[in-house]
């Protein structure tokens, strides 16, 4: 299916401005002094619940053409007329804060501290090249104090948030399988996923106390935290497969899922399942695979591949290996 319309909006400033002139590079992050592993790309997810201050260290870099917002004579001495700024903005807490950086050569180093109590939802860190004082400039250039000269891709921080109460995530509960009428016959199980209700429920066997201790481990470094991530991967793989199969089974011939969570599962997995296919064709591919019994094993294989990629299994295992080696 192809969308029959597309709308694009783009903003322009009435003077020379380089919208891709700057880039933010985060080299290290620490949480209350303890170093934090970085995610790939231009975002950082903080999983810990209890922390006060997140510190990011890195640099804002001037990319080629970054000084295009300055007239020619100023381009040779940008440090005299312009400053680099990092502006932190958090919509949920109406928080805005600017940090001026010293522009040296090709950019500026920074160390930025973010207090958890000021943040909720997404926090954006935006780089700006800004005119320092009002100047007389040739037509086509910005001469006002504070005028925007260049910006670049923003860096996003996602502080930990309690999972929504409104069913955004799978419901996960600890249950003593031994005390449960349904599950007591299978005390050896680690988890049980129920998919027949309105929303699925993942029950984790609280009777395996050592396992639970690892599942509840805090922090992002240390052996237990690494183990926890690998345990999560194990559970996630099984559970995602079950969720996926259950959702696929429920689809009607047009690819509509009767329950919202089933749609959510497919929205999450289809891009990994059919990475080469245009968004619109993924559902068709899925339905074609489902329709042909001969392709069911192919579907299972693709689901497995998608999950391995999505879960970043190797990364977590490698971290565990590194930590285990280090602690020997």
């Amino acid at each position: 299916m192809t969308a029959s319309q597309r709308v694009k909006r783009e903003r322009f400033l009435p003077f020379a401005f380089e919208r891709h002139g700057l880039s933010v590079r985060v080299d290290s992050a620490s949480l209350d002094g303890a170093s934090l592993p970085l995610d790939e790309g231009d975002a950082l997810h903080v999983d810990d619940e209890e922390w006060r201050e997140l510190t990011l260290a890195g640099a804002v870099e001037l990319r080629k053409g970054a000084l295009g917002g300055l007239p020619g004579d100023e381009r040779v001495r940008p440090g005299e007329v312009a400053d680099l700024w990092l502006v932190v903005q958090c919509d949920r807490t109406a928080w805005r804060a600017g940090h001026r950086l010293e522009l040296e050569g090709e950019g500026a180093k920074f160390e930025l501290s973010l207090e958890r109590d000021r943040l909720a939802g997404v926090v954006e860190v935006v780089p700006w090249l800004v005119r320092r004082r009002s100047e007389k400039v040739p037509p086509g250039y910005a001469g006002a104090a504070g005028a925007r000269l260049a910006t670049g891709a923003r860096f996003a921080v996602y502080p930990h948030e309690p999972a929504s109460r409104a069913g955004e995530f799978l419901e996960v509960v600890y249950v003593s399988f031994g005390a449960d009428a349904v599950l007591s016959t299978q005390p050896w199980r680690l988890y049980h996923l129920e998919t027949h209700g309105e929303t699925p429920v993942l029950r984790i066997n609280a009777d395996h106390q050592d396992v639970v201790r690892v599942l509840d481990a805090k922090g992002q470094t240390g052996l237990e935290a690494r183990l926890r991530e690998v345990f999560y991967d194990l559970i996630s793989r099984g559970v995602w497969s079950l969720l996926f199969m259950s959702a696929v089974e429920a689809l009607d011939e047009d690819g509509n899922a009767p329950r919202r969570w089933q749609e959510g599962v497919l929205t999450e997995l289809l891009p990994f399942l059919f990475p080469g296919a245009p968004k619109a064709e993924r559902m068709d591919e899925l339905l074609a695979l489902r329709a042909d019994e001969a392709h069911l094993s192919l579907l299972a294989t693709q689901c497995d591949e998608a999950l391995q990629q999505r879960l970043d299994l190797v990364k977590h295992i490698n971290r565990l290996i590194d930590t285990a080696r280090g602690s020997r």
């Binding site: 597309r6 619940e49 799978l170 996960v172 699925p200 599962v265 497919l266 999450e268 064709e281």
Partner: peptide, 23 residues
């Protein structure tokens, strides 16, 4: 259960799974 684990399953997202390629 552990919230971190829960957040590994964002299944409540609305949206159409893979429909709507732009023409």
């Amino acid at each position: 259960g552990p919230e971190r684990l829960q957040r590994r399953f964002p299944i409540g997202k609305a949206g159409s799974p893979g429909k709507g390629r732009s023409a």
